[in-house]
């Protein structure tokens, strides 16, 4: 595996150069927010920032995407299969927690029996450049509790670690190696590993939120009907913010839109927090109140995903903690469950 050093102040220019050569998504300042956006001339990619408000999953699994289109014919309708064309792209500046979310989403969308061609095509064509967290940015960060880490490379093709004066550039996959030309620099040796290890140890120490996320699985297995589930949803507004900002939430709706003789079938992000999500035509709803919906959310992340894919569907980014309008805190929920 190839390792190099690049000068710290050269990174911004290198990213802009990549954007001249092809499609680059990067974190940029947008008002008060940092958002991942398509980098166009004149835009400044951020290299030192906490984390983006939106999880970058939308570049593989957009909020809204066309699945197919169709036209009205004399006999009804004829469809014309449409695969949104996936373009070669670079997703720059992803934090390790969000990069890990791609590994988790791959488990669902890239299964052997039913591969999701829309997701898989974009994923295959996109090179992920990850920016390690040498100082985990938020008190709500808890990646180390869910199998992640501030300098983890899971899901990344290239990992950049800030070593002070320079970045250590690690090319982790063949896809990452294809971008070597953009990261020309001095070859890094074993000394880089030692330095990175020290930085990692320090960064891990700075993460103060530690929750028993992996320990609660057997408790969840046995407590579907526990009175605890009556407590967490009481103040939930069912706004769905947690699921929309979550890097691993993947639920979607499929709907049709028609205008004149042309129609499209779309998929849109959906949320288990919404009453309509499971409402059946008969009026029956297997998850009739916010209690069942919250139980589903907690169970899906910390039990069902573990049952199906042997992984927790949470990366510890803390977005749901930071942006919940009524301060529901998944860290507290997990900790409380551990005490049931």
């Amino acid at each position: 595996m190839e390792k190099r050093y690049i000068k710290k102040d050269s990174l911004n220019g290198r990213v802009k150069k990549m954007a001249e050569a092809g499609l680059v998504y990067a974190p940029v300042k947008d008002g008060d927010n940092v958002l991942f956006q398509v980098l166009t001339p004149g835009m400044e990619p951020l290299t030192a920032y906490a984390n983006s408000k939106n999880a970058p999953k939308n570049f593989f699994f957009p909020h809204t995407e066309k699945l197919m289109k169709y036209t009205r014919t004399e006999k009804g309708m004829a469809f014309s299969g449409e695969l949104a064309e996936a373009r070669d792209a670079v997703l720059f500046g992803v934090r390790p927690c969000d990069a890990r979310s791609f590994v988790l989403l791959d488990m669902l969308f890239d299964q052997e029996k039913y591969r999701d061609p829309y997701y898989v095509a974009r994923r295959e064509k996109t090179t992920v450049i990850c920016l390690a967290c040498i100082h985990p940015p938020y008190t709500s960060c808890f990646c180390t509790s869910v199998d992640g880490g501030p300098t983890d490379a899971a899901g990344a093709d290239i990992l950049l670690t800030d070593l002070g004066e320079r970045y250590l550039v690690e090319f982790l996959t063949p896809k990452g190696e294809k971008l070597e030309a953009h990261f020309a620099g001095e070859k890094a040796g074993d000394e880089a590993d030692a330095q990175k290890q020290a930085i990692t140890a320090q960064a891990e120490q700075e993460i103060t939120s530690r929750i028993p996320a992996k320990e609660i699985k057997p408790i969840l297995d046995a407590n579907f009907e526990h009175p605890f589930w009556n407590t967490i949803h009481q103040k939930c507004l069912a706004c769905g913010t947690c699921t929309y900002l979550c890097p691993t939430c993947h639920c979607f709706d499929i709907s049709d839109e028609q205008k004149g003789d042309d129609g499209i079938r779309l998929r849109n992000w959906d949320s288990c927090m919404f009453p309509l999500f499971t409402l059946e035509t008969s009026g029956h709803n297997p998850r009739p109140t916010q209690k069942e919906r919250w139980r589903q959310r907690a169970m899906h992340k910390f039990k069902y995903y573990v049952d199906n894919f042997s992984a927790i569907a949470c990366v510890g980014c803390g977005r749901c903690v930071m942006y919940c309008p009524v301060n529901i805190d998944i860290r507290k929920i997990v900790t409380d469950i551990s005490k049931l």
């Binding site: 959906d270 999500f277 409402l279 059946e280 297997p286 169970m299 069902y304």
Partner: peptide
């Protein structure tokens, strides 16, 4: 069993009973 479904291939996330 019957549940509300969309994708039919275990991805859209609404028809699960437990895992």
């Amino acid at each position: 069993l019957e549940m509300r479904m969309k994708c039919g291939i275990g991805k859209c996330g609404r028809c699960n009973v437990g895992s």
